[in-house]
Design a protein around this nucleic acid. Structure first.
Lengths: 188, 188
DNA sequence: GTCTATAGGCAGATAGAC
DNA sequence: GTCTATCTGCCTATAGAC
């Protein structure tokens, strides 16, 4: 079980940095210190590994969202905590695993797609809940439905992560995230 | 020269749909009707092809932006015309070529990166100009610097395109784009 | 400019010993 | 569970005929 976890950890980083089509079993093997062939004992095919990665990553997301909920923060601070998840990715030169797989969707085995869809749905739903909460507390002034604001927020963070990989401009990422929240806060 | 153009057209679509690591010379060869080896006469290495693709795509962007400028529309309509460029991509199941390469940046030959950087800079600058123009005409109420609004706008469209590939939800893309513009328009 | 032929390497995956 | 050995196939790229 321990080796399986190490493989997943290594593979997750590789996908987030290089994409599902940008790494091989050889890369994992050299990182975790066993031979290529041995990896197939844990994950018979690369698609099996991909499906497992999506499960793990969705679980990590769930933990983080529950942790943030438990902090009992006002809605704007919850969004800031959510932004921090992306900041950590950026600092590790990692895309969101979901975002990375989304760009590669047309090349992936179809069995990976439902998990990917659920990942985005989970993000959108949580954000919509937080934004609706901020609206009902008069903390946010909403110009549209919470779900629509949620989609803008999620899309913008995914895109900001993607662009920051190229520009290397972390300050721009921060400014983007800040403006997303302040635009929800006040329109006066 | 005609074959070179056909190769570029085919390769551009392949990159936008499958990524730079998700297609091969064999894919292009079967589409344009010559043999794999003959492609190397036009583009000796795949990196050469990638650099050429970025040049072509940046040129296409420039044409579109100039065309939109020539329409002499109010700022919000210019942004709507810009959104239409992404809509066409989405309908063709294509990512933005820049966005696709951005996710793969860590696997690309370094000679492709400056062109990629310039692509995003060009987008941001044009958007900032349009948004500043809308602000100075009191059409937009800006809560931040035009450059910051431009980054939010660009990031959100890139992200929306990425997410729509997975959800297949074109209506969500449209709602995201609409909210981005209406939030610039009025805060009253 | 396009072809056939091929090099040389790496991909994902399997068989069977230990 | 991990190993060595190997398979098959695809990849980018090159050589040289036409």
């Amino acid at each position: 079980m321990e080796m399986k976890k190490r493989i997943l950890t290594s593979a997750q980083k590789l996908v987030q940095q290089r994409g599902f089509n940008g790494f091989s079993y050889a890369d994992i093997a050299s990182e975790v210190g066993i031979r290529k062939a041995s990896l197939h004992h844990h994950f018979p095919t690369k698609t099996d590994l991909g499906v497992a990665l999506l499960e793990v990553y969705s679980g990590q997301l769930d933990s983080e969202l529950k942790r943030i909920n438990g902090l009992l923060l006002p809605a704007d601070a919850k969004l800031a905590a959510y932004v921090a998840l992306y900041r950590y990715s950026l600092q590790a030169e990692c895309m969101c695993l979901g975002g990375m797989l989304a760009t590669e969707a047309l090349t992936l085995d179809a069995v990976m797609l439902p998990g990917l869809k659920r990942f985005f749905a989970r993000n959108t739903e949580w954000l919509a809940d937080v934004i609706a909460e901020g609206g009902s507390h008069q903390l946010f002034t909403l110009s549209g439905a919470p779900e629509d604001h949620a989609r803008v927020f999620l899309s913008a963070l995914q895109g900001a992560l993607l662009i920051a990989r190229v520009t290397g401009d972390c300050a721009a990422f921060e400014q983007t995230a800040r403006l997303l929240i302040t635009d929800l806060l006040g329109k006066g």
